[in-house]
Amino acid sequence: MAEKLALVGIGKIARDQHIPAIGANPDWSLEAAVSRHATVEGIDHFETLDALLETRPDITTVSLAIPPQPRFAYAAAALRAGRNVMLEKPPGQSLAECYALEALAKENGVTIFATWHSRHADCVPDLKAWLAERTLKKLTITWKEDVRLWHPGQEWIWEPGGMGVFDPGINALSILTEILPHPVHLSGATLEFPENRDTPIAARLEFADPSGAPMTADFDWRQEGPQTWNIEIDTDRGSARLSLGGERLEIDGALVKQGANHEYANLYARMAALVKAGESDMDLSPMIHVCDAFSLGKRVVTAPFHY
Rank of each mutant, 00 (worst) to 15 (best):
A6Y: 09
A21T: 12
H120A: 05
G23Y: 06
D50W: 00
G23E: 15
S118F: 11
T55D: 15
T60Y: 01
D16I: 12
N108F: 13
S63K: 00
A14I: 11
A121E: 13
G42A: 09
H37Q: 09
Q17R: 14
L7G: 07
I66K: 08
P70M: 09
G9Q: 07
T115Y: 03
L30R: 03
G92L: 01
G42S: 10
V62T: 05
A21R: 10
Y74A: 13
V110E: 01
P26R: 11
E88I: 00
Y99G: 01
W116P: 02
K4C: 06
A24L: 08
D27K: 12
V85Y: 04
A6W: 02
Q93K: 14
L52V: 09
G82N: 02
A81R: 06
A65F: 13
T61L: 08
G109F: 09
R83V: 04
I43M: 08
L52Y: 07
L53E: 04
E107A: 14
F113C: 09
A78G: 06
A75R: 03
H18Y: 15
A81Y: 10
A75H: 08
G82Q: 05
A78M: 05
A51Y: 00
G42R: 10
S29F: 12
A78L: 03
Q93N: 06
I22D: 06
A78E: 05
K12I: 10
A103P: 00
D58A: 09
T39D: 08
S94D: 02
S94L: 00
E54M: 08
S118P: 00
E88M: 03
N84P: 07
T55C: 02
D58H: 09
P67Q: 10
L95C: 07
A38N: 14
I10D: 05
P67F: 04
A24D: 15
V40Q: 14
A75D: 07
A114I: 01
I59N: 01
T111H: 10
A65V: 14
L104E: 09
H18Q: 13
A76L: 07
E107Q: 15
I112S: 02
D58V: 07
R56E: 08
T39G: 05
A76G: 04
